[in-house]
C-alpha cells in the first residue's frame, strides 16, 4: 500500500516503465458560472475566449495565462499560476454588475497529479469508464475515476492532469500507484 504524503507535498508518487504519477504544486483555481448572454463580458475580463463546447479548453494570451475548461453549459474551471487568484477575482469583480456570475475560489478543494508515460492513457482505464480515445489532447472532461468525481485534462497523447477532491485523493492515487506497477508487467 502506498503511503501518500498526507501533507500533499508535490513529488513523484509512483513511477514505472508504464507511467509516472506526480503530485503537482497548488495553483489558483476557480469555478466560474455565468449565463451564455454574459459569457462574452467575462471572456473580456479574463482576456480569453471562454469555450462553449463542453470539454474544450482555452488559454489567455499571457505566458502562463489563465486556462479555462468548459465543463457545463454555464460552467468553467479556471486554472492559473499560484498567486494569480486575486487578479482574476478583481477582473471578474469589475464585471459583476454588467454580467452577474459566480466566481468561487477553490485552490484547496482539489489536488492535482500529472500522469505521463507510454501507458498513461491505459493507466486511466483502470478507473475511468470513458472512451479516452474521444478525449483528444488539448481537451478535458469532468468524469469519474474509480467511482470518484474528477476533472481530467489531456495535455498530450500520453500526458494527463487529474484533479480530485482532496479527501478522495489517497484512494485515487493508491489505484494509480497499483496500476503503474501492474501495467509495467504487461
Amino acid at each position: 500500500m502506498t503511503v501518500l504524503p498526507t501533507n500533499f507535498v508535490p513529488e513523484p508518487l509512483a513511477t514505472s516503465a508504464a507511467a509516472t504519477v506526480t503530485l503537482l504544486a497548488p495553483t489558483a483555481r476557480f469555478s466560474l458560472r455565468v449565463w451564455p448572454e454574459d459569457r462574452a463580458r467575462l471572456s473580456a475580463a479574463l482576456t480569453l475566449e471562454l469555450p462553449v463546447t463542453i470539454g474544450q479548453r482555452a488559454r489567455g494570451t499571457a505566458p502562463d495565462g489563465t486556462e479555462a475548461l468548459c465543463v457545463g453549459p454555464d460552467e468553467w474551471i479556471l486554472v492559473a499560476p499560484d498567486g494569480a487568484g486575486p487578479a482574476i477575482e478583481a477582473a471578474c469583480g469589475d464585471a459583476y454588475c454588467d454580467a452577474p456570475h459566480s466566481l468561487v475560489a477553490l485552490p484547496d478543494r482539489e489536488v492535482s497529479v500529472r500522469i505521463e508515460g507510454p501507458k498513461a492513457a491505459e493507466l486511466l482505464t483502470l478507473g475511468c469508464p470513458r472512451d479516452l480515445d474521444a478525449l483528444i489532447a488539448g481537451q478535458g472532461r469532468r468524469t469519474v475515476f474509480d467511482g470518484v468525481s474528477v476533472i481530467l485534462w489531456r495535455d498530450a497523447a500520453q500526458e494527463f492532469r487529474l484533479d480530485v477532491w482532496r479527501s478522495f485523493a489517497p484512494h485515487v492515487l493508491a489505484l494509480l500507484e497499483t496500476g503503474c506497477r501492474e501495467l509495467a508487467l504487461d
Binding site: H101, S102, R109
Partner: peptide, 12 residues
C-alpha cells in the same frame, strides 16, 4: 434565478 451553487466542502 440568477444564482449558482458551488461545493466548497473540501476547500476549507
Amino acid at each position: 434565478l440568477k444564482v449558482w451553487l458551488t461545493s466548497t466542502t473540501e476547500q476549507w
